[in-house]
Design a protein around this nucleic acid. Sequence first.
DNA 1: TCAATGATAGGCT
DNA 2: GCCTATCATTGAC
Length: 228
Amino acid sequence: MLDRHFYDRPVLAVARDLLGVTVRHGPVALRVTEVEAYGGTDDPASHARRGPTPRSRVMFGPPGHAYVYFVYGMHWCFNVVCGPEGTAAAVLIRAGSVCPPRPERDITGLDAPARSGSAGRVDLPGAAGPGAPRIEPNVDGPPPSGPGLPGWASGPGRFARALGVDGGYTGADLTGPGPLSIHRGTPIDDTAVGHGPRVGIRVGTDLPYRLWLLGEASVSRARSVRPR
DNA sequence: TCAATGATAGGCT
DNA sequence: GCCTATCATTGAC
C-alpha cells in the first residue's frame, strides 16, 4: 500500500505516479488510467482557490486522504489529497479499468461496498449534505458498458460509482487500515503517458494538468464544449 | 445538443 | 437569511 510519503510530494509528481496504481475498496479494484492535478490556491480551477471552506477544508489537510465531492446534482468525484499539508493540492481520478479484467468475477463483487454500511465512512461537516444520495454501484440498471468493459469506470462520476465511494468517504485515510486504499502497480514508462489540458472546467484550461495512459480505452475522449 | 439535479459560495438585504 | 450563478458530469435524444 502506498504510504504518506508517496502523497507528500508536488501534486504533478503524485499525479504522474498515480497512473497505473490500483485503488481498492473492499472487493473492488480499479487500475487508474487518467488523472487531473489541482494545485492549491493559485489554481483558478481548484476548489481550494478561495481558501478553506466547509467543502474544501480537507484539501488543506494532510496528504493521503480522500476528498469526495458532489457535483452537478448527481455525480461524485474521487480525489486524493497530496502535497505538504496546507498546500491544498489534490489529484482527481478521472478513469480506471477494472482489475483484474475478469468481468464475470467482478460483477458480484461490485455490490459489496454498498452493502457494507458505514464502514470506512468519515462524517465531516461539509463533506456532503444529509440529503445527498448515497452511491449504489451496479444497482441502477445497465451502465453504458458492463463491469470489466472499458466504459465502466470511464469518467470521474463513473469511476466513483464503480468504486463505491461517495461524500461519506471524504477525509478517509488512504494510508491506514480502512477499506479504501491505493496500491502500487506495474511501473509506467514516460513514453506511455499522455498529457494535456484538463476538461470540464472554464478557467485554468491552459495548464497541462491532465495525465493519462496512452492507448487505454477507458481514458476520457475529448467532448465538444457547450457554449454559454 | 441539451436537460437533469442539488450542493456550494458569493453577493446582497 | 435569501437569491442567484456556477459547477472538476453524464446519459438520452
